[in-house]
Design a binder for these strands. Structure first.
Length: 270
DNA sequence: CGCTGACCCTGACGGC
DNA sequence: TGCCGTCAGGGTCAGC
């Protein structure tokens, strides 16, 4: 599930139930994620108040006075609030039990996610070297254009490079390139500033729109059994290879860029 | 430094 | 019904 909008939706969903609470207990069931969960995480967290839930790229940061829990949902992870005593399901790898009667429960079938501990003041290697957040002014056409000069790789791979900009995953890279009218296999270094302006605008629009969609299902995070909101009904190209373009009717084509499914319209994208 | 492909893991799905 | 190959929204890492 998690692209940036799903991660931000998760952050907004759990924040009001987590901030101001205290960690009563941490239960680890399966520590073999992308990297092992530190065995001392429960003892470090126990009794600590949670001061904030932040997001950087697709990482969730749970702040306490003695350090930060850094969570990534990988490809298949989710973080939900459940009631105390609710029996764990398959792939429910750990719980953070909070005062006030909520349990933060992490589920991840593929185990590509992670849960790491970050001492205060330290900046984790995973977070250093990340590019700007896509919804801030630091992500702009001028710097995107400037940094692209001389690059021969496809613009879609460039857009998904976390050093260039964070949080643009495969779905939204496909969508933004369609909306900006840019062929995903065009060399990043051979795209004009004007077209990068269009691309930046569409990245911001598509992410903002998806976050607002996800926001409609926030209630699912508390005691519900529904999944976080999904954006499928508004997709122009992702998952639609062979089907007609919603703008011009041409059959959408598929190719692979950096091992990832890439769909585009030969007529609308140049 | 830039770029490509292998890899981590489970589950869903389509073809035979 | 079962088996097998392929694919999936993440990212790191080695190697050229």
């Amino acid at each position: 599930m998690p692209e940036l909008p799903e991660v931000e939706t998760t952050r907004r969903g759990v924040e009001p139930h987590v901030v101001g609470r205290e960690v009563e207990r941490v239960v680890l069931r399966e520590t073999r994620l992308r990297w092992p969960i530190p065995p001392d995480l429960p003892s470090r967290l126990q009794g600590q108040p949670l001061e904030a839930v932040e997001r950087r790229a697709k990482y969730l940061l749970f702040r306490t006075p003695v350090g930060t829990v850094l969570v990534h949902l990988g490809m298949s992870g989710s973080l939900r609030l459940v009631s105390p005593g609710q029996p764990p399901a398959r792939h429910d790898h750990f719980d953070i039990e909070l005062s006030g009667g909520h349990v933060l429960r992490y589920n991840d079938p593929r185990r590509f996610g992670c849960c790491l501990w970050l001492p205060p003041g330290e900046t984790h290697a995973l977070l250093s070297g990340l590019g700007p957040e896509p919804l801030t002014g630091d992500f702009n056409a001028e710097s995107l254009y400037r940094r692209s000069r001389g690059r021969k790789g496809p613009v879609k791979a460039y857009l998904m490079d976390q050093k260039i900009v964070v949080g643009v995953g495969n779905i939204y890279a496909n969508e933004a390139l369609f909306l900006a009218g840019i062929r995903p296999d065009r060399a990043a270094g051979r795209i004009s500033l004007a077209r990068y302006r269009a691309l930046v605008e569409q990245v911001k629009l598509v992410l903002t729109s998806a976050i607002s969609q996800g926001g409609t299902t926030l209630r699912d995070f508390v005691g519900g059994d529904g999944k976080p909101g999904y954006f499928a009904q508004q997709l122009y190209v992702y998952g639609r290879a062979g089907q007609p373009c919603k703008r011009c009717g041409s059959a959408l084509r598929e190719l692979r860029i950096s091992q990832r499914s890439t769909i585009y319209c030969v007529a609308c994208q140049r």
